[in-house]
């Protein structure tokens, strides 16, 4: 079959990290499943435009799509921050994916993205992020006065509410700042990647499984391009993203467990695991911040209402 669509898709991951490899494999599978009618080219973070600029670039037709953390667009509308990472809402990837697929999340995303020229295909996630710390943290009380790095979005606000002192340094200075004890802790990424980057060499008290953050990565493409696609290709793309979600969850969880086992056997690193009580306490602080974000825009309010309705119906809050 002749090639009908080429999609240049920029990732929010760097070329050398496991996540990007999984995304490249997804791109290949799409080619196979469509019999070559769709060719997806995965581009690493910042290769065409900077990570926070992909939404505009897709709308302008410069890029065709992205696989990216939706909270990067919190500055465009707080709704993106709330739906991408409602800190405290999810304890496992499957919970978030169910909400997106069946609980109104997909419709919300499209109501936010369609007017901006994008079509949401589906969500994936690298899973619960582990917390990097150079001081022992065993509960919410230990967060008091903790100098920690947090990125834009809700995470920063929640930690501030929990009594920590968030510092807004960029990712490129996390390592040196942890190493020299400018900061005590950092919101980085999943355990295995933190480990590979050497963060545990300088911050020996990681909290795993994480308690604070599980980012939603959206797979979206230019809406005009989507609308021009025949139904079978649209369906294949949707299915392939559902599969990517499970692939990413499974393989990164395996990598995490492998890295944890290695860290345990090698020693030197003390892995902290919070009790259910402490997790609940943190969750309560986090959910109290949702309302504040909801008040910032109409769309954020809609996200808030849908989310609370779903969580209540499921008995999760």
């Amino acid at each position: 079959n002749a090639q009908e669509f080429t999609l240049k898709v920029q990732s929010s991951d760097a070329a050398g990290v496991p996540n990007f490899e999984l995304e490249q494999e997804w791109a290949k599978r799409v080619g196979v499943m469509t019999g070559g009618r769709v060719e997806v080219e995965m581009l690493p973070v910042n290769s065409i435009v900077e990570h926070a600029e992909t939404q505009d670039a897709i709308a302008a037709g410069i890029l065709d799509g992205h696989i990216t953390d939706t909270s990067y667009f919190s500055g465009k509308d707080p709704a993106f921050g709330l739906i991408a990472n409602p800190v405290g809402a999810w304890s496992a990837p499957s919970e978030m994916l169910r909400f997106v697929q069946y609980g109104g999340g997909k419709e919300l995303m499209n109501s936010l993205l369609n007017p901006r020229g994008l079509q949401f295909i589906g969500a994936v996630t690298p899973g619960l992020e582990a917390f990097v710390s150079s001081v022992p943290l065993d509960g919410v009380a230990d967060l008091k006065g903790l100098k920690m790095r947090a990125p834009e979005g809700m995470v920063q606000q929640v930690f501030a509410a929990a009594g920590a002192a968030p510092v807004n340094i960029p990712q490129s200075e996390v390592f040196t700042s942890l190493d020299k004890k400018v900061i005590d802790a950092a919101d980085a990424t999943v355990f295995s990647t933190n480990q590979a980057m050497g963060l545990h060499d300088v911050a020996k008290h990681p909290v795993y499984p994480g308690f604070h953050s599980m980012p939603m990565l959206e797979v979206s493409i230019n809406k005009t391009k989507w609308d021009s696609m025949p139904e079978d290709i649209q369906a294949i793309l949707e299915m392939s993203v559902r599969d990517l979600a499970q692939d990413m969850d499974a393989r990164l969880a395996m990598k995490d467990m492998e890295a944890v086992a290695k860290a345990r056997s090698e020693g030197g690193v003390t892995i902290h695991n919070w009790s259910a009580e402490e997790r609940a306490k943190f969750r309560q602080i986090a959910t109290s911040q949702w309302e504040k974000v909801a008040a910032r825009s109409d769309d954020a309010k809609r996200v808030y209402d849908t989310l609370v309705k779903y969580l209540t119906a499921q008995g999760l809050i």
Binding site: D56, A59, A60, S71, Y72, F73, S74, G75, K76, D77, P78, G81, P115, R116, E152, G153, Q156, Q157, A160, P166, N168
Partner: peptide, 25 residues
Amino acid sequence: WLMVKRATMTPAGDIHFETTGSAFN
């Protein structure tokens, strides 16, 4: 100018300057 249009207006046409998305925002 094309970039500014997207950074200063919501799709509905309201004025909204793109923010940093942080707690300071």
